[in-house]
Amino acid sequence: MPSSSEPAPDEPPFVERVLAVVDSIPPGRVMTYGDVAAVLGSRAARMVGQIMAYYGSDVPWWRVVRASGHPAANHEHIALQHYRAESTPLLGVGSSAYRVDLRTARFDPADEDHPNDR
């Protein structure tokens, strides 16, 4: 008998599900690693980070940020280029410690039909 932590036989593996959520984040919006995990019914934010590190190069990885709004470590410069191109709301631009303004840029797939005013 499979454990409750194993996906159902017809459910895609966790890696594929994470990448699908990340691929669904619209330009100019972001989710935290924890947000992505929560959408999948999980609390495995660190696992989402690992998946992004190993498999995330083919999805808009810059749209997944740390809970503080900071981009992935050691990817700040390239992420900033993407944020500027997508008009992502940022705080502290001009400093090396800029971050995404989560209050206005955070994406919630449950609110997709009712986007919040930015």
Rank of each mutant, 00 (worst) to 15 (best):
A97S: 13
S24K: 05
G49K: 04
P109A: 01
T88D: 08
S42T: 11
P27A: 14
H70Y: 05
L91N: 07
P109T: 05
E11D: 08
S5F: 13
D108F: 02
M31K: 03
D35L: 02
S68D: 15
G49F: 05
Y54K: 15
Y83F: 12
V18A: 12
I51N: 08
R118S: 08
S3F: 11
W61H: 01
Q50T: 07
D113T: 12
V22A: 00
R46G: 09
Q50I: 01
Q81S: 05
A73I: 09
S95E: 13
D23R: 15
R66C: 01
L40V: 07
S95I: 06
P60V: 12
M31N: 04
Y54I: 04
V64C: 02
Y98A: 08
P13S: 13
D108M: 03
A44H: 12
A8G: 11
I25M: 10
L102F: 09
E112C: 05
H114N: 14
M52P: 02
S42L: 09
N116C: 08
E76D: 08
A45L: 06
A110H: 14
L90H: 09
A72Q: 04
A67D: 13
A73K: 12
E6D: 13
W62Q: 10
A8H: 10
V15K: 12
H70R: 15
G56T: 00
G56D: 09
N116V: 09
W61I: 00
A37V: 11
L102R: 14
R43I: 05
R106D: 02
R103G: 09
S24P: 02
G92D: 12
H70G: 10
G92T: 03
Y98C: 06
A67E: 15
A105F: 00
L40M: 08
L19Q: 10
E76M: 05
Y55R: 13
R29L: 14
P13L: 09
H82T: 02
E76H: 10
R46Y: 11
P109D: 01
Q50L: 12
A105Q: 06
A38E: 15
V30E: 01
G69W: 00
N116Q: 13
A45M: 06
S96M: 03
D111E: 12
P7Y: 10
R106Y: 01
A44D: 12
P27V: 06
S68G: 01
E16H: 14
D23A: 15
A105C: 04
V93M: 10
E112K: 12
V36T: 00
A45C: 06
G49S: 04
I25P: 02
T104C: 08
S4F: 14
A79F: 03
L91P: 02
Y55P: 00
G49C: 06
Y54F: 11
A37C: 13
S68Q: 03
P115A: 11
Q81K: 10
S3N: 13
T32D: 07
A97N: 12
P12V: 14
W62V: 04
P13K: 12
S68H: 01
P115Y: 11
V100H: 04
L19A: 08
P13M: 10
R118C: 02
R17N: 05
H114P: 01
